[in-house]
Amino acid sequence: MLEILGLLIKISLVVGITQGAVAYLILVERKIAAFAQDRIGPNRVGPLGLLQPIVDGVKMFLKEDVTPGYVNKPIFILAPFLTIVTAMIGFAVVPFGPVGPNGPVLMDGPIQFQIAPGIDIGILYIFAVGSLAVYGIILAGYASNNKYSFLGGLRSSAQLISYEIPMGMSILGMVLLVGSLDLNAIVEWQDKHHVWGIVVQPLGFFIFLICAFAETNRLPFDLPESEQELVGGFHTEYSSMKFGMFFLGEYLHVITVSYLVVILFLGGWDVPFLTDSSQTGWLFALIKISALLGKVLLMIVFVMWIRWTLPRFRYDRLMELAWKRMIPLAIANMVVTATVLQLVRG
């Protein structure tokens, strides 16, 4: 009973905090966009514009919700919900702090900073859920009954399927090294060996990073939206909060992917020379949570920074990059890692 209560508290905390974070990430994005273009950005609502996300949210809710007469209504309404749900459930296995027997003790046991602790197929689960995200987009494109939206949906399905392959293979090197699909085990391995994933698997890191951009539909891979060619792509026909939900889904995706990059390749909660997995107590738990959060925030800022640096890919180049460059590289990376491991371990 107590366990279920704790679980519910954890879930509501994660959901609440991530949703709030998304609102503020939009402000961060707008600010960075402004700075990159030598502007100031929103600064009128509240001190430094800090109340802007609230006003934005209110605007989203109060706008007229137009459902065009020619759309396939049930699917049209279902699509944004699918986007949000698939983006949210990925958080179930993302550790947002240290997990294990050494967590800070509250009542009868250590707190696990993960909704589903000790799940040993964490990465597999995230990839499976991540693949579902394409349903939201392709259903939105199909249900809109509009050529631009449909093209956006088609593009997104081709893009996501193509990039899932190198993404899955790029982490195999890391998985081979650690010998586990558990995200906590991967962090602990990096912590124990005093080496981050980016050092032992630089190629894997690059391939994963590029695929992460493609999976989140962020620039330079925002082909499904591409305002200039497809008006708004899959969300052309959406307005009000339905559009807002696609927005929310995209940012939730960015958060998940940033967590994954940090956990897999940037050491997770590991701070060199300061932390290790045998530490107990609240202080170290807080240090680890903030270290992980800080790295994730830097990663998100990097995602936004890239947006204002690189132009969008042409579609054939996008496919070429995935199939002709990244998949062979990922396979080579995997084979070399496996060979070296076999030789070293004998």
Partner: peptide, 22 residues
């Protein structure tokens, strides 16, 4: 490219790089 945009972001955020007149 990252260096160029990064320079603009830092200049506009902390320095006098912003061209906006309020």
């Amino acid at each position: 490219g990252l260096f160029v945009t990064g320079r603009h972001i830092v200049n506009a955020a902390v320095g006098t790089g912003s061209l906006t007149m309020e």
